[in-house]
């Protein structure tokens, strides 16, 4: 029997660490989703650069969707900062051992890549702007006309996307003090979860956002998947199936990674074992089991499986569930992870 008392009573730290509230999960969620979108877009850009008919991959993102989501995420991140006036300090230094410093600089690179990628379709998606700013049209044309540039852009999207996606997990996993996060699986898990969220988001916007008539040009169709709702409405079945297939794979991998995370923690120290309890039987258990696992992964897996077999029609329900599950995963991991703490070998 051990009784421990402490007189410490610092706000946000006691009785359990709760320095990060909704802002960080929102930031991690959008960050992961954008990472996924960039990877998906990058893959298609590479196909395109090789001359494949990548236009068939239907995308309904507006040119600035990524930019807008990015700003939402960064806005949430900014709201979380306690010393806001000093935020510029993060770009006055590069700390090679700090994942957050890496992340900050990656984010700084992500922005121009997203904007340049958007630029490609901006003049057409937003003809009004294209007519008034011919320079945008010229820049857009210059990229589109050069497979090398498209390839480079694709590589940049994929590279930064992977970096961004993994970073959101690594940021947490490097903290030895928080046993629940203390797993290298967290990076890949957040990356795959980001990919599934990206596929869901693309699917969702394709279905919900009123699109322009699909452009006739080769390039217009090709880039539609990246930047604007320029596809056919409703999406052609092949495209929809492609997204669903991808999502099935992402969700399946995500489930495996969560399983591996648990196995890893369960076979580790007492602190890590106790950390699992926080998810599976503690305060966060209900949301973890019902929202993250059942509603966020199992149900969409089942629904999309049936959709692929054309036994039920395509709906936006799986996409909505995947997005909810993706956010819940981050919310639960951030909350429970903070609550998890090291237990002294001697029994503290």
């Amino acid at each position: 029997m051990i009784e421990i008392t402490t007189t410490r009573h610092n706000p946000l730290v006691d009785p359990v660490l709760s320095v990060w509230s909704w802002e960080i999960p929102v930031y991690l969620f959008f960050g992961g989703m954008i990472a996924g979108m960039m990877i998906l877009a990058g893959i298609n850009m590479l196909k395109l650069a090789k001359g494949e008919r990548a236009e068939s991959f239907y995308s309904v993102q507006t040119p600035l969707l990524g930019f807008i989501l990015m700003n939402l995420g960064m806005g949430a991140l900014f709201l979380d900062l306690a010393h806001k006036l000093y935020v510029y300090r993060v770009y006055m230094a590069f700390e090679p051992h700090s994942p957050m410093s890496w992340g900050s600089w990656v984010l700084l690179l992500v922005y121009p890549v997203i904007l340049v990628s958007a630029l490609i379709r901006l003049p057409q998606a937003w003809p009004w702007l294209g007519e008034r700013a011919p320079v945008l049209q010229r820049l857009s044309d210059a990229i589109v006309a050069s497979p090398g540039k498209v390839k480079l852009l694709g590589i940049l999207n994929i590279g930064l996307g992977i970096g961004l996606g993994i970073y959101t997990g690594i940021l947490l996993s490097t903290m030895v003090a928080r046993p629940l996060w203390n797993s290298a699986i967290l990076g890949p898990l957040f990356l795959v979860s980001g990919l599934s969220a990206a596929a869901a988001m693309v699917h969702l916007t394709a279905s919900l956002v009123p699109g322009h008539p699909a452009p006739r040009s080769f390039l217009g169709g090709a880039f539609a998947m990246l930047v604007q709702p320029l596809g056919e409405r409703p999406p052609e079945p092949r495209t929809a199936d492609g997204l669903v297939k991808a999502d099935l794979a992402f969700l399946a991998v995500e489930l495996v990674l969560i399983g591996l995370l648990f196995i890893g923690l369960a076979s580790s120290s007492a602190s890590h074992v106790a950390a699992i309890d926080l998810l599976t039987s503690g305060k966060y258990a209900t949301i973890f089991w019902w929202v993250v696992i059942v509603a966020g992964i199992l149900v969409p897996l089942a629904l999309q499986w049936l959709e692929l077999g054309h036994r039920i029609p395509h709906t936006i329900l799986p996409a909505l569930l995947v997005l909810a599950g993706g956010f819940a995963l981050r919310w639960v991991m951030v909350g429970a992870g903070q609550a998890s703490h090291m237990i002294a070998a001697t029994g503290m």
Partner: peptide, 26 residues
Amino acid sequence: AEKCIGCKACLAACPYGARFVHPDGY
């Protein structure tokens, strides 16, 4: 204090709970 952005990563990273956010933000 003048370099701190108040991201609180250090609070989460400390196994001892030794840090807190000063009401001024750092």
